[in-house]
Amino acid sequence: MSLNRRQFLKCMGLAGVSTGAAASTAEASTAPHAGNDWHAMLTDLTLCVGCRKCEWACRKANGPTDPGPIDAYDDPSVFEQRRRTNSISLTVVNRVGPTRDDEKPTFVKSQCMHCCEPACASACLVGAYRKSKLGPVIYDESVCIGCRYCMVACPFDMPAFSYNSPTRPAIHKCTMCFERLAKGDGAPACASICPVEAITFGKRSELLALARRKIAAEPKRYVNHIFGEYEAGGTCWLYIAGRPFEELGFPANVGTRPYPELTKGLLSAVPFIQVIWPAVLMGAYAFSHRRETATSANDARDTTEGTEPGSES
């Protein structure tokens, strides 16, 4: 099956080159799994106490508005409703459970997952997103037209849009403090402030090894699953937890296939259709045209020979 598909794509690629069409549409914008050196984050949900200091630090580092006093983030009433990232809060912490009295609640920090092969980047029609060499997925506001297809494409529903701005609406999402990383100024704001070290910053391969060590050391504390190792083709934000991830509100249906592959087939068919379809249509035209010319020639002959007996057809 996979071999057939590859041959099929190759065939279409050739067709694309022969028309001089944009055969590059068949290529993803990102290199496949260069990934072990990518910067990444590991969130240990068994450690998180829900202090929301990461939310404060994130807003202070990236936010469009002042984050306000840090003490205000202690208010537990925000946990009563499930929140999602928005154009002001690029990361949010939600409380899940407890479902039983003897159980402790789990706090779940969410933000852009920085996919290894990001759906948003493949969906963006102006190339506003790119997977940087450092690992974070970066968005460039200066070319964005505000179509919001990235929000449709994102399997984790992370990009948010500033609908309230009439002149400069834009996507807002976690950048993994990209500018700080680019300068080599240490860990992202949320990881730096976390008082219980629930967020670890490092190279993706190292963090995967760390996560495995942790799970192996305390198999009762953790479920044997590193969320983000394979999800949606792998992400640069990894999670380990004490409960199954579906119970914690993580999307269960993202699969392990990189999302850009979902549209690759359609886009590879474009050059193919560009070559075949006009040929078929011109063939149909030639056929109907010739039939018509033949019919009118016959008609002409019939009218000239019409006087002869037995010439009716």
């Binding site: 944009a22 590059s24 549409t25 290529e27 993803a28 914008s29 980047a121 493949s122 969906a123 963006c124 029609l125 102006v126 190339g127 506003a128 070319v143 964005c144 037209i145 505000g146 179509c147 919001r148 297809y149 849009f161 400069r168 609406p169 834009a170 850009p260 549209t263 359609l266 886009l267 474009v270």
Partner: peptide, 27 residues
């Protein structure tokens, strides 16, 4: 009406094409 910044409508065509997007094909 729907685009956040409709005045950038020609961007996908000439200024900053995103060729991996289905939306690019539509545009």
């Amino acid at each position: 009406y729907d685009l956040g910044r409709p005045w950038r409508l020609p961007f996908p065509m000439v200024y900053s094409p995103g060729v991996t997007s289905v939306m690019f094909e539509v545009a």
